[in-house]
Design a protein around this nucleic acid. Structure first.
Lengths: 341, 341
DNA sequence: ATTAAGTTTTGGACCGCTCCAATACGCGGA
DNA sequence: TCCGCGTATTGGAGCGGTCCAAAACTTAAT
């Protein structure tokens, strides 16, 4: 049976404990400045009445609330979920329980979409800090966020807020690993399917270009632009690619989702093209898929993000890069015969 | 340049427009009771100052805010994301812009986990209604939710709140389709891998049992309990199953994720077992996976959910069931030879 | 012109908490 | 015993809205 009486407030607790409401408030905000005797009495009273501070009133009264807003880029991308979990595990351990998540969603065209109102609502709640997971496209509203709101971007980059602190993989280093690996297997004609994520996409692309040039494959550079960062886009663009006169012998994809789509297209055409993904999501590890990929170092990213959220900007940098690792699976194979020698 | 001055309040607008703050408030809460003349003046003033109502203060002052809280069961399950998107698209169309999402996350053991504080925070915000997507395990806190908070559960079921309205697939009908399909292909020894989701899991299981009995396969009924609802659990339990003396010729899985794990195990053992999933997530549709599955009717579920959220309990029921559809793919195949005749 | 009956508009209390200046307390030293 | 000073506690003003009863203004009828 639901408790029909309304929630007790700070005043109820104060009355019960025989102290002032201010003291009760203090117990919850800076307990060290309250005498042991009273503290105990107050906590007992609170316990008895089932009191818990009201989040809302707290945020309104104080200049800022005591919670963290998490904005998630795409519910469909497993990477995002994985990073989100890692960060939450860490916050939880540190005793930081409060957070509100908001998410972009996909509209009817299947494009990730953030409506301004939803973000506005969240900011109205006055979080201590805003954690963005994934890359968020340029949105005007991001620029008008309160100047004192710390913004941390994990596994992505955001355009339009220069004060944000970002933590992401060293994309160029990662692409160097990818191209290096494929080159070792004998590939010289390696194409890149780029995604649409703003900054990150550019970094991966330029990493690819540099790595290709460094090996003298400059003339084979080919960057294909996917329409979005998911499997459908990967499938479609690869279909196109396979129709071209001179398809590459290997493809380095922007992420695992695109790679999965590309793999479908390749399988269908029964061609033998090596494939590398990015993000090491559980998808790429499924035995049915088994795509070579880049481990983006989510643990490290989550560690740093959690620290930053808790106000510890250890190295006082604005950009942290985690170390990528190549995960080799069966989708990248030695080049057999090739019309390119 | 970020706007350093603080946000204008209702009082600022009132001053600018030369009216009382109450009237400004009215313009936003029940505009019809304000004269055209003043309304126009106020809106112009608001526009000029860049005023937007503060979410927070609104919730605190009123008995309830003007937004919908969405609690998402598992960021890793594509079904959830798909339903969430569908619902949001509908709300958006209806002009309902405000919502706050919260999500369970996975703890270090990989189990979906909802910390009470996080849910409490959300409820503190006093949403108009709470939409739960997916099945939420029994949590004490759910029982103590304010009695006047409407709770709607899409694509799942919740234990501990009897007043919740649920919308889900007709699970028994779906399992009848699954078993019927496999039976048509000649299978008689069909096992079921059950998941851990509370009510829904039981319904699917009983649907399976009924369908088996109806065909005289009662003695072949075998229900395996997966440790969770994901691909790892599916893989492990299937590994076990394959080691048994008399493995089935077909497996009906609780959901697509489990089916994907089962498929891995089956592929590894090179056995030829038919497989059916559930949910018709994009995963099951990937050509690398291509698992026969149940389309749970997400559109219908989302439609009804959106209506309920907006206060229209069309049929005035507490449980709505959507019509499942069988999606046949290559994972379910005609029984060739079998030791069972 | 006066009054009754609407319709708009308004001031003030309040939602539950934080913050701050003011007050009360506690304790060692004169 | 009294004073002084650091620490513990308190009351009141706000945070930005909503809500309601009362005031002000309309309009229609007598």
């Amino acid at each position: 049976m639901t408790n029909m009486t309304k929630r007790p407030t700070i005043r109820d607790v104060a009355a019960e404990a025989g102290v002032s409401k201010s003291l009760v408030s203090l117990v919850y905000s800076s307990p060290k400045s309250v005498s042991e005797k009273r503290k105990e009495k107050i906590l007992k009273a609170a316990e008895k009445l089932g009191y818990a501070p009201n989040f809302l009133a707290r945020s309104l009264a104080a200049d800022s609330g005591t919670f963290i807003a998490i904005l998630v880029q795409d519910l469909h991308n497993p990477l995002i979920a994985e990073v989100a979990d890692q960060v939450r595990i860490r916050l939880e351990k540190a005793g930081r329980f409060y957070y509100i998540t908001s998410a972009m969603y996909r509209n009817e065209e299947g494009q990730p979409f953030l409506d301004k109102q939803s973000l506005k609502s969240i900011v109205d709640l006055r979080p201590e800090s805003l954690l963005v997971i994934g890359s968020i496209p340029k949105i005007e509203i991001l620029e008008s966020l309160p100047a004192n709101l710390p913004i941390i971007v994990a596994s992505g980059a955001t355009v339009g807020i220069n004060r944000a602190i970002s933590i992401r993989t060293n994309e160029e280093e990662a692409m160097e690993l990818v191209v290096g690996h494929l080159a070792e297997l004998g590939h010289t004609h390696i194409s890149h399917i780029a995604g649409v994520s703003p900054v990150v996409g550019k970094d991966r692309e330029s990493g690819y270009v540099k790595a290709m040039k460094a090996r003298g494959f400059g003339k084979n550079i080919e960057v294909l632009q996917a329409k979005s960062d998911d499997e459908n886009a990967g499938y479609e663009i690869t279909k196109e690619l396979l129709k071209s006169k001179n398809p590459p012998t290997a493809i380095a994809c922007f992420n695992d989702l695109i790679a999965v789509g590309a793999q479908s297209a390749i399988n269908e055409s029964k061609s033998d093209i090596s494939l590398v993904g990015y993000d090491n999501t559980y998808l790429s590890g499924l035995s049915q898929i088994d795509i070579t990929t880049i481990d983006p170092g989510n643990r490290e990213i989550a560690d740093i993000s959690a620290n930053l959220i808790m106000g510890e900007n250890i190295d006082n940098k604005q950009l942290y890069l985690s170390k990528p690792k190549l995960i080799i699976r069966s989708s990248s194979k030695k080049l057999k015969k090739s019309k390119y020698k």
